[in-house]
Design a protein around this nucleic acid. Structure first.
Lengths: 195, 195
DNA sequence: CATGTTATATCTACTAGTAGGTAGATGTCA
DNA sequence: TGACATCTACCTACTAGTAGATATAACATG
């Protein structure tokens, strides 16, 4: 089953690459690292993803689709805004938990390495940031309108603020304090938007 | 003047390394990059800093002392808390501006690359985070006591939140929106602590 | 004051290992 | 047979780090 096998391998490569990217970053990993994890030869990875840039781009593309899909599901639910917000934060919390406290958001990591990335990847990254801020704005605005959230200022700005904080808090929590600290920070954040 | 010359070179190496670290990260730079910038041979860098880890550690150590020194000066002034907070944020703002929008806080960058760092560097990084949170707590608590700041929750937690946001906002602003976006985020932050 | 000594600092030239990437043979299945 | 997938073997470029020669300047001694 050449086609099916190939697809599985491709997914396995993407999975391994993503996990490595989230812990060590783009400049901290090599095809050899991925090869060791997936148990496939280095050259075979090049067959599926001819260059490292293309591989990173593919990982990022898949990550964005998945992540924003989860966010959209949260938004589509009929939960009240504070619950939606909690669930949104839960996505980040889960990443921190699943990676044994060593993984951060892929886009936070790549954001730090921005100078090493190429055009399609950078554009994807920017879009990811914007899409998240946009969705948070939506949740916040709706929550405020229904009196379930309370904060001053534009919902758009607060949305960006929430997103920035989550990315920053993940980095800091990984270095010091772990999930526990992350939760203390997000609880405080929720309090500050009146949730 | 062997001694004086050596000191200057050492400083020049630290300066170049820091600038490169803030834009490209630890895994994104090499002794050759520094050599090109400082106009000294690669081997001469090894004379001053035998290994890359030692060099990074030295850069970080100097950065922490400088940065915390500036923060302490802000705290020691008799400005009201909201002004102190603004000045503190100004330190990050300046980094973003000076680096033509390409530099982020050294400790935010190294935080992302945590998995590639070694023990003394990691410890320094953790200390830097704690020291900043501590100083912010001080400013926040004092401001609230005097009625010049208004927020719910522990000052300690809010201090960590402010710091996390600043680190996160720098990363995001560099990728998308620049200094302008950074300022919009920090203005909103100030608003949320009643400044 | 001239001279030899020593420590500091820089250089050229090298090593072993790893990086990303390629060529081409081999296997495998429809 | 032919497309897909994987392999071995290799290439060139770059990595961190080392060895050893050389320059320089402060210092001690006759």
């Amino acid at each position: 089953m050449a086609v099916a096998m190939g697809t599985d391998t491709k997914t396995a490569i993407l999975d391994a690459a993503q996990a490595l990217l989230q812990t060590r970053g783009a400049n901290g990993i090599s095809y050899q690292h991925i090869s060791d994890t997936v148990k496939i030869r280095k050259a075979s990875i090049h067959y599926h993803f001819p260059t490292k840039h293309k591989l990173i781009e593919a990982v990022l593309r898949r990550y964005c689709v998945n992540f924003l899909g989860l966010v959209d599901a949260i938004i589509a639910s009929d939960d009240p805004a504070p619950v939606k917000l909690r669930k949104y934060i839960g996505l980040f919390d889960r990443t921190l938990r699943n990676g044994a406290g060593q993984k951060v958001c892929l886009c936070g990591m790549l954001g730090a390495e921005l100078a090493s990335l190429r055009s399609p990847t950078v554009t994807l990254l920017q879009r990811f940031y914007r899409e998240n801020a946009l969705r948070l704005e939506k949740i916040l605005e709706e929550g405020r309108k229904r009196g379930m959230l309370r904060f001053d200022g534009e919902a758009k700005t607060v949305g960006m603020l929430v997103f920035s904080l989550l990315e920053g808090a993940m980095l800091l929590a990984r270095a010091d304090g772990g999930v526990k600290r992350f939760r203390r920070l997000t609880s405080q954040l929720l309090r500050m938007v009146g949730a």
